[in-house]
Amino acid sequence: MKIRSLGYLFKEGVKNIWSNRTMSIASVGVLVSCLLLTGAAVVFSYNINSAMKTIEGNNSVRIYMTQDLPTLSAIKVGEEIKKLDNIKTCEFVPKDEAIQQYMKILGDKNGTMLQGMTGKDNPLPDAFKVSFKDLSKYKDTAAQIKKIPGVATINDYSDVAAKLTRLDKVVTMAGFWIILLLSLVSLFIISNTIRVTMFSRRVEISIMKSVGATNGFIRVPFIVEGIIIGMLSGALSSFLLFLIYDKMVGSITSITLFSPVDISPMAGKILLAFMLAGTLFGAVGGVISISKYLKKEGGEIVGW
């Protein structure tokens, strides 16, 4: 194959996308859904990781007093806690302050929602925000704190961290299976779509072979076609991912305390990864779709 054939073969590939538009559209659809779900899994796991980092970074634990413990006694408990070895900081969080924080988080500026929960009717107990010198000794220290009279519960963030780790594993696993399943499904759909539209192209391939075209020559337009479809799908799915994520981030931040990661700095990387994945899928798909016919000769291909 000569270099100057490439121009011609490239044009043929582009033309084929249009002449086989049903298949082209179907392939783009399949690829986009596959890439989108993959992207969703990756972004989700990324969020969980970042949430875990925030928690680990805080390295702080809340210790709640029993409900009716007078503030003075609570402060005494605080003194007890500070005496323990493993305590780095110990900060008193009065219940009034805590309820105010909640109001702020919930966006209840006027305090209408939690009105009547301030002062004596405050349902929250007093608490201490404690950080440890050595987190690995957490269990012992927690046990010592629990023994102090007046301590009700310890809000165990490491438990949350463990849960998140587990969730992340589940998501990774689920993501893996989803991607695997989707790849199989998309391969199935693609090969079926190809099978349906392949008849005319099968004739075309056998004719090309019978007038002396090499397999490489026949393959190039198919690869070009696959690559273009793949790049198109990559661009489309990254665009959709950003759009959907943006919408979801908007609604998630307004209902929960959790703040999702801003993925816009990764936009370039995601686009690139999607385009590459799409290109690879497309090219491989293009090669696979014709390899069956390239192996055969003339009549065998169409049954002349």
Binding site: K2, G212, A213
Partner: peptide
């Protein structure tokens, strides 16, 4: 023209 493209003829 296809037959000529195969053998790498110029446009």
């Amino acid at each position: 023209a296809f037959a000529m493209h195969i053998v790498g003829a110029s446009n």
